[in-house]
Design a protein around this nucleic acid. Sequence first.
DNA 1: GTGAAAGCGCTAACAG
DNA 2: CTGTTAGCGCTTTCAC
Lengths: 329, 329
Amino acid sequence: MARPLPQQTTLEDVARAAGVSRSTASRVLAGYGAASPSARDRVATAAAQLGYAPNPAARALATGAGVRLVVAVAGPAPDVLHDPYVDRVVRAAAEVCALREVGVSLEWLPLHAPERLRRLAEDRSVRGVLILNTTERILAAMPAALDGRTVSIGIGSPAVPSFDVDNGGAARTIVGHLYESGRRRIAMISGPEWMPCTRRLVTAYEQVMRTAGLPIRLVPGDFTAAGGQAGTLAILDRWPDTDAVFANSDAMALGALAALRRRGVEVPDDIAVAGFDDVPFAALSVPALTTASHPVERIATAAVTAVLDRARVPPATAYPSELILRESA
Amino acid sequence: MARPLPQQTTLEDVARAAGVSRSTASRVLAGYGAASPSARDRVATAAAQLGYAPNPAARALATGAGVRLVVAVAGPAPDVLHDPYVDRVVRAAAEVCALREVGVSLEWLPLHAPERLRRLAEDRSVRGVLILNTTERILAAMPAALDGRTVSIGIGSPAVPSFDVDNGGAARTIVGHLYESGRRRIAMISGPEWMPCTRRLVTAYEQVMRTAGLPIRLVPGDFTAAGGQAGTLAILDRWPDTDAVFANSDAMALGALAALRRRGVEVPDDIAVAGFDDVPFAALSVPALTTASHPVERIATAAVTAVLDRARVPPATAYPSELILRESA
DNA sequence: GTGAAAGCGCTAACAG
DNA sequence: CTGTTAGCGCTTTCAC
């Protein structure tokens, strides 16, 4: 046995001090269930005086509610966890969870083994699951036991509410901006194929371009700076007259900037470059990066709050992204 | 009551399948306490077959061990939580914790109200505490009830083991490198005054400079890019012949680069610039930033593992930082 | 070496 | 509106 912790005030103590039964105290503190104003009052006072704080473990055991929120990040390999975006989500989640005395744990969800979710479904310590990089396949494999305690930052389903940036709208805004500033031969470096958001960005880009009667110039990327450099060189090779590059992540955009500099191409004079994400250093690059900013923390907070409170939420909540105009486009 | 979760296999089930009592099964699974080889074997088999996983909440309730790890970040204001460094630590912690089915929550620890720790000490859901930006004052205010379940990334005390980068050594390496590459008028932009690591970097810098008979040129910074710009301008003003700037964070170094560019100063030809941290974009700046890389994830993992396992660890573990030579110095 | 029994702190029927 | 009662799943004395 671990060294005993200092005796903490328990619900029993509160009840005794308030002169009611434990159940009544429980009801009052829980907020629902019947309770006379006087009882309600005495319990509240006693709890405040004694500095009562419920024991989450006991509560979890009694209700079967679970004590932790699992952030499950889908991806082809465990290294998807090592991404500043994941860091931001986990941090926001850990902050929200702290208020409710629950903790966050972080796991990789193999793209091709969505049955791993079953383990989470059966684990009674799991209060809720937040899925990142959600794919159709994962949604299809979602165990029913997870219904009502799973949310997605990304695509959703009837059983899994979605909280996400309006990626399509954001892409249209960026491409629209490039168009309005006179660019006509706009290339795009997309993200990894397996990510659903990639498709949405690609579709939005293609729509805008086709509507404007402009050529599609699309090369695949991988969200890394190296990938951005490679993609940019590929674009320069295939379509030398390109006058704008929309990289679907800031890391790739920064890579694009590096590649162009090395080639002696002036940004934005010869070629405009736009990124996506607004990472901290997008403002510090040379030239400073025009990009789209996403309220990641706000989204994560809303998603986590929804799952912790078992709130009824709309099947999909879209968050606007903001165009951040700087020097590069 | 939340919708009932699917029935999970419980210790009772395992015991029944193994033909022993719950207590015996518990002992076997816990690993200590007496048990005949045969019982030991049957229980292990049954547990494996049934895919038994203990319920952490129940265990926590029975042992009083707690179900979450709190990452407490010391600082003057709640916004200390919003820092990529904190994100990295929390993410690493959440990854390690997942293996033990515990969660992480993140809290601000007011610099001037270390008594907040008492709340954590009394909270029976808290399995352990990881303190960031630890100060002497906080160590002094540490409740005894937290002994044995608290670790620090930063300075430590007899009661609180420390896991930290050898900041002094790292600073000596950086300043030494500047010296060896011929710089003699080396200025430093330090971090916030209240952070203990600031003092260590300052001391190391001063030692090296004094030993070499060189002038001390120190300006305060705040770890932000804006602060780095301001600090650099101040340095240029006060000591126009400065030939190197050591910014105590990459953000400040990047700010320094921006300020110097604006002033038409060539880096590294006129002035060398070195950073500290090796953030992802240090490699992408122009010129690419020479800096020191710290094994943040490794440190966090070790610290969290130590506190979760109640391991006996040395009072202080120092991790080496690595000099990352790039273009700026 | 093993099992019976008590209890961790809380919630939620269910009678009154 | 309130108290009684029965657990949630696990650990841990303490007799046998």
